[in-house]
């Protein structure tokens, strides 16, 4: 966007250290700050991913025993076979060289070969990733639509219904996805028979039908969480001086709510909703397992049980990358919504 983004890497330092506020006109100053902030965030993203890739790669060497016994599951193999395996996984080279091979492979979409399936990890994953993405997206829509509307409603119309909603939310926040999944299966799949018990289905409508229970199970606690925080944010904004002033001046209530309450509350609301959605990535593992959705999560669990380490590495890397990228995107969105944050004067 802004061309003058380049510049020296900003010393982002501690948020507590006040940088002398820039004097120039507000618009240009904040635009530059946002650009700087964005560059710093992206640099941080790359650094974090680099460290994460080292951790995930290095994990193989943390395991008890040498990597080769780990890869062969301790089975005795002919020396030639061991040699071939060592060559295949570049274990006959130095560790940094091995890491380099692995990383360049990953960057080209080559995650190595599955020990169990003797197939490329990339293609094994590609056939499953759709199920996971669909599950997380479906849950994300539920969280954002339901969580925000419940929270905004309860915040704007305090009363018995709002109280009940918030009380229920407190209780639902304590329900882990797998408990929700079990209860939903019992009620809506076994007893009522409205939805299939497990499987991912075929065809668009059938797939969506199969995804309803898993998505609700995954989203439930987060809907409650987002609802409660949205409620708090809306109520805080409603009580703010400028909103009270606007109401007492006789401005239409709807206008005040739209312009002053929702807009100001949007920053915390969207951030929390976004972070919660990012958190779904790990939670999806458990839900996929319950409903046998055959996505990345259930593949990860199988790979762990079978000690198929190349698959474990690949899926962990994908999860971590999507989690970190999402978090960074939310941060950037956050600073676009509220430029004070990038300038360092925000209500951090």
């Amino acid at each position: 966007m802004t061309a003058q983004a380049g510049g020296a890497p900003t010393a982002s330092g501690a948020p507590g250290t006040p940088t002398t506020p820039a004097a120039p006109t507000r618009r240009r100053g904040s635009g530059l700050a946002i650009a700087r902030f964005a560059v710093a965030r992206v640099v941080g993203l790359v650094a974090t991913l680099f460290v994460a890739s080292i951790v995930i790669f290095g994990a193989l060497f943390l395991a008890p025993g040498s990597p080769i016994t780990f890869l062969t599951h301790g089975r005795s193999m002919s020396p030639e076979a061991v040699k071939a395996l060592e060559h295949e996984y570049h274990l006959d080279e130095s560790v940094p060289a091995q890491y380099w091979h692995w990383l360049t492979g990953v960057l080209h979409g080559d995650f190595g070969t599955s020990i169990l399936y003797h197939d490329s990890v990339g293609s094994l994953i590609a056939s499953r990733v759709v199920n996971t993405v669909a599950l997380v997206l479906f849950s994300a829509v539920l969280i954002i639509v339901l969580g925000l509307s419940i929270g905004i409603y309860a915040g704007l119309r305090p009363g018995r219904l709002a109280g009940t909603l918030m009380g229920t939310s407190t209780a639902l926040m304590a329900v882990p996805a797998f408990v929700a999944a079990v209860v939903l299966t019992l009620v809506f799949a076994v007893d009522l028979g409205w939805f299939p018990v497990f499987g991912s289905g075929s065809g668009l409508l059938d797939r969506i039908h199969h995804l309803v229970l898993p998505s609700v199970a995954l989203a439930l606690a987060s809907v409650a969480f987002v609802g409660r925080l949205t409620n708090a944010a809306v109520r805080e904004e409603l009580a703010a001086d400028h909103v009270q002033t606007a109401i007492s001046r006789g401005l239409p209530y709807r206008f005040v709510v739209r312009r002053h309450v929702i807009r100001n509350a949007a920053v915390p609301m969207l951030t929390v909703a976004g972070l919660t959605v990012a958190g779904l990535i790990a939670g999806s593992v458990v839900v996929e397992q319950v409903f046998q959705l055959n996505g990345l999560g259930s593949f990860l669990v199988t790979a762990v049980q079978q000690k198929d380490f190349p698959v474990v590495q690949a899926i962990c890397l994908i999860y971590v990358t999507s989690f970190v990228v999402l978090n960074t995107l939310i941060d950037l969105l956050y600073s676009f919504l509220d430029p004070r944050i990038a300038v360092g004067r925000g209500p951090s």
């Binding site: 974090t48 460290v51 395991a63 593992v285 762990v304």
Partner: peptide, 21 residues
């Protein structure tokens, strides 16, 4: 920041992959 990149459950699964369930 680097540790933040790993959701708790994922790190735990990675650990069980290495050291056994």
């Amino acid at each position: 920041d680097a540790v933040f990149a790993f959701p708790g459950l994922l790190l735990a699964i990675l650990a069980t992959a290495l050291f056994g369930a």
